[in-house]
């Protein structure tokens, strides 16, 4: 009986076959996401002013920048690779990179190299919003690709793509923000955007999972 069901299923699937357009290459999508992110960074640079001269940056600032960059890129690559069966090794590398990058960024943020002042948290909310706004540029491209992919663990996929995008957004803000006090860098450039992105993945995954089961085989 179960084998008969399998045979019926094969016949049904073949009968319902519709042409599909293969997904784009991962490297093309990654490049497009980064290009759009670059445009957002340039815009932010012109609109928000500039950070102090790099000579004034403590070395932890560079570690933070590198961490956010690695976390952002790793998250985006992991989310894209995770959406395509057979690309798990790439996804794993991206995931490890993201973990490493987030850890480095957090460590740099907590190192206290910038010193804490009374206004150390000043403007953090603005930087979180800017991080998310800039991060939404790569999110647009990567998110569309991931949503079209073959994802079964929606929560993980949503978390990867959101944290990756937020990481890239935070990187841009960290590089351009003139306020370099300890609490501000930690909250506004690191914990705020990343935690918000991780939390946003919960409702996104719920909506996505529901709509995916509704349009199961539309593609």
């Amino acid at each position: 009986m179960t084998r008969r069901l399998t045979d019926e299923l094969v016949a049904d699937l073949a009968r319902d076959l519709e042409p599909v357009r293969p997904v784009a290459r991962l490297r093309v999508v990654s490049a497009a996401a980064l290009a759009l992110w670059g445009v957002a960074v340039v815009l932010a640079w012109f609109l928000d002013g500039h950070a102090p001269e790099p000579e004034a940056w403590p070395w932890q600032h560079f570690v933070g920048l590198a961490g956010l960059g690695v976390a952002g890129l790793g998250g985006i690559v992991a989310s894209l690779a995770n959406a395509v069966p057979g690309r798990e090794p790439t996804a794993k590398v991206g995931l490890y990179a993201m973990g490493l990058g987030v850890s480095a960024a957090l460590a740099a943020g907590m190192s206290g190299a910038w010193g804490a002042g009374s206004g150390s948290y000043q403007g953090s909310l603005g930087c979180v919003v800017r991080s998310i706004a800039i991060g939404s540029a790569p999110l647009l491209i990567a998110g569309l690709f991931v949503m079209r992919g073959a994802v079964s663990q929606f929560r993980g996929a949503a978390c990867l793509v959101l944290v990756g995008s937020a990481g890239l957004g935070a990187l841009a803000v960290q590089a351009t923000c003139p306020t370099l006090t300890g609490g501000h860098v930690l909250v506004g450039h690191c914990v705020g955007p990343l935690v918000l992105a991780a939390l946003a993945s919960l409702p996104l995954a719920a909506v996505w999972g529901r709509s995916s089961s509704l349009h199961a085989t539309k593609s």
């Binding site: 179960t2 997904v23 959406a83 069966p85 057979g86």
Partner: peptide, 28 residues
């Protein structure tokens, strides 16, 4: 096996022509 066939059908657009076929099926 039936779930694999359904998943394969749903994910058929994720197969890239330049990639080998078997790792794709095995992953599904």
């Amino acid at each position: 096996v039936q779930n694999v066939l359904i998943s394969l059908h749903r994910a058929r657009h994720t197969y890239r022509p330049e990639r080998p076929f078997s790792p794709w099926v095995h992953a599904i």
